[in-house]
Every structure is written in C-alpha cells, then in structure tokens.
Design a protein around this nucleic acid. Structure first.
Lengths: 237, 237
DNA sequence: TTCTCAAAAAATGAATGCAAAAAATCGGCT
DNA sequence: AGCCGATTTTTTGCATTCATTTTTTGAGAA
C-alpha cells in the first residue's frame, strides 16, 4: 500500500518523451526492419532459435518482440506453431492503401485547421524541389521529396496519435513499396504531379474538406498503380 | 485462473478473420479489459507481481501482454521502472477523437462505394429504432443504436484492417466514454439526431465525400461535447 | 530536526529449465 | 511396395532463476 502522496509531485518529464527508449524497443525495431527488408520469405516459418542466434539474445525478449510485431500485423502467430511472416495478399494491400488514404485525408483536413504560413511555405519549397526532379526525370529525388511532403502534411496535423498510426501503416506497406511500385508509378508520373499541385493549392487555401478528398483520391490512384503492377494476384496462386 | 471467464465474451465479429486465438491472446484481452474498465488508477504504477497474482500466471506471459498493450498505447512502459496506466490528457483525447473521426470519415466514404441496398435498409431500420428511443428520451437504447449504426458503417466499408484499427481506438477511449460523456451529450441530443439524419441521407445517395465530411464533423461535435464535460483537465486531478 | 549518503529490499530485464505440443523419424501393417 | 501408426526429436509455452537497476530505509552529520 504505497501512498501516492509523495508521487504526485514528480511528474515532470513523463509527458514529454512519450516513447521511452529501452533495449527492448531497439529489438522490436531491429526485428521489424529485418522483416520489412525482406530477409525472411513470405509466409515462411520463423524459428525462434534462429532469430535468437541472429540477434544474440535469448528467447524471452525475442518472444516479446514477436508478440508486438504480431499485434502490429506484420507477422502471424500460430499457437504452438511459431511465427510466420504475414504475406500481404492483394486484398490486404487494397485495405492498407485505403486506410493510408483515409489517414492522409484526415491529416490534410487537420493540417488546414492549424498549419502556419511558414510551414506551408516549407512544403511549397519541397514541392518545387520535387518539380525540378520531375523535370529532370530523377525518380529517386522525386520520390524522396514526395515522401517528405506527405510526411510534412501529417506532421502539420499536429496529432501525435495520427503520426504514430500513419508511421505504423507506412511500415507495413514498406515491404511492397520496396519490391514494386516504382516502375508503374512512372506511367502516372505526370498525373501524380498534377495531383500534388492540387494538394498544394488546397493547402494554401486551407480548404480542409477539399484537400481531404484530393489526398484520398491521390492515394487511391497510387493504389491502382501499385495494383496493376502486382496484378498477377499472388493470393490464389 | 478464473479471470478470463468473464473477459472473453466481448469480442464482436471484428477480430474474427485472421487473428488466431491462442491462450496468450486471451490474456492480452483480459488485461486490456481490466485496464479499460478502470481497475487501475490513472498513471498508477503497475507492479508485475500484483497482476501475476491477480491473473494466476507467471511474469513471462504477463510481460508479453504488457509489451503488446504498450504498443497499442494503452500503457506506458518505462525502462526499469515498470508499466504505468497511460493517463489520457485532454490533448490525447482531442487526438483520439480526431483520429476516430478520420477513420469514420474513411469508413463512410468506402461504405458508399460498396454498400448494398439491404445493408442501407438495415442501418435505416436501426436509425428509426434510435429515433424512437430519442422521442421517448431513452438514453441507453439510443446510445446502443447509435453505436450500432457507427459500427455497421465501419463494417460496410468492407475493410478488415480499418475495422481492426477502429476497434483498437474505440477501446482506448472506452474508458473516458464510460466515466463521462453521457450527461453533456444530452444537451446536443437534437443536434446529434439531425446529424444522423444527414448521415443516412448521404449514405442513401452514396455520396461518399459528403458522408465523409458529415461523419468527421459529427465526431468533432461529439468531441466538443465530451471535452466541455471533461474540461477540468483530469491530468492533474 | 533535516539533509545526505549508503546499505538493504524490492522490482525489473533477461537467461535458463521444464512440461506439453507439434514435427520428424522409424517400425509395422495391408 | 506403399501407407499408417508409434516413438523420438524438436519446438513452443510458461515457470523459475539470476543479475542489474531502482526504490526504500536507516544511520550519521550539519
């Protein structure tokens, strides 16, 4: 029965660092990257022993990390049968892209409510940088700027919960993003560029609802591009 | 050992599809409910030993469950200092409501794309039932129908990922929903009812973008009501 | 008394050990 | 010869144990 009387005073730095960094968090991140980067085949069984050796730890912390990743949806945990890399079906991809679209739509709406002119200017600047990459047909730089813009909009929403959720889903589709997506994206490069113009325009006017629609549609188009890429459906193969 | 008996019941049809049910999942669910139902004080330290005794298990599975709940954002895990119930600040509440609004907005948009006339009719029916509760000033029944309608819209989106995410966030605010929210809601009862009329109307017309806006605003208003209720910041209470 | 510092106590983080379940291997049967 | 069932082996799930870290407690000095 410890009395909270003495406790109430010492809550200075608790709110600020929401995510405390422990050794365990590092392992979760490492394992997540390990999987996201495709070191394990889709649907492959993940023997605990193997990963223990790989990461140089015992089974206890590894299992904790596996549970977390399972909760994140990155792997499946079959009772008494170990962990398996969750293979993303075409259906999963559809769902993930739509949820990402919904989150970005939300971010756009919220950003319009509170974004400062300075932050809009920063996005504008990145947009122009991206445009230069587009003109020079430099895919990589374009991609980087693109990602940065979307991230800035999400940040501008001023909603840490949203940012965290967005990051989580972004991680989940990063795998496919790596493997595919680039080639077909090229076909709709001009279209994407125009969409980004519209995004910036709506953001300048602080037209939340409009920006929301544009962003969702933007992701929807991205999804279609990615899907036509991955079209030969692996789900029922 | 007798703990999970009462806990396992309240999993709607949401989680069904892909999550395999192990004994461990039961523990996570039980612990989640245990916290959500307010058995632990806000910000209170959670001694592992105590929960081990309470649930009749050893520390290993408990710690696994704690990690998962921490990943869900329900508790904070301070390195070497144990777990604490994450106290929802006014800021957190604002964020959560907005994210919920974003998810519902997305659900509405997606639902308009694929909902069948039969499902619309079902929602319509629940809506009328809700209206009868409204006329008779029966708060509880109204509330049930309200929840059901929102859940049906989310389900109608046909996106399991969205459903799971929605359920997760709903769980996180369930705590405050229990404690407060009802009284003030009464003041804007009529307004909420009108908003629901608009929701149904947009759904009938399959006006996705419109429904999206309405649902977000609906949640925004709900948030305002809840906030004016909880206004005296509970963080430092 | 009150503050500081140090030792004791308790709690956390991680490794190991043990029982049960699944997978693999081998012998028996049709 | 091939297929099915039992035994061995491996793997998983959980409890227990060990090493640090934190927290508490107590003694001594200002």
């Amino acid at each position: 029965m410890e009395i909270p009387a003495t406790k109430l005073r010492d809550t200075p730095a608790i709110e600020a660092p929401r995510a405390a960094v422990s050794l365990h968090d590092g392992l979760v991140a490492a394992l997540r990257d390990y999987i996201v980067e495709g070191n394990l085949a889709d649907g492959a069984r993940i023997p605990e022993r193997l990963l223990c050796d790989r990461f140089g730890i015992s089974r206890t912390p590894l299992r904790e990390a596996l549970k977390v990743l399972a909760a994140e949806g990155l792997i499946d945990l079959l009772p008494n049968r170990g962990a398996r890399v969750r293979a993303l079906s075409a259906e999963d991809l559809r769902e993930l892209f739509d949820v990402m679209g919904g989150l970005e739509a939300l971010a756009g709406r919220l950003a319009c409510e509170r974004i400062s002119d300075a932050d809009v200017a920063e996005i504008e600047q990145t947009h122009h940088e991206m445009y230069r990459f587009y003109l020079r047909r430099e895919m990589h730089g374009y991609f980087q700027c693109n990602q940065a813009i979307h991230r800035m909009i999400v940040e501008a929403a001023g909603n840490a919960t949203l940012s965290a959720t967005y990051a989580s889903f972004a991680g989940r589709i990063r795998r496919v993003r790596y493997s595919a997506n680039l080639a077909k994206e090229r076909d709709r490069w001009g279209e994407a560029m125009r969409e980004h113009e519209a995004i910036l325009d709506a953001l300048r006017r602080r037209a939340g609802g409009e920006l929301s629609d544009i962003l969702f549609q933007h992701l929807r188009n991205k999804r279609k591009a990615a899907q036509s890429q991955t079209a030969p459906d692996p789900a029922d193969a």
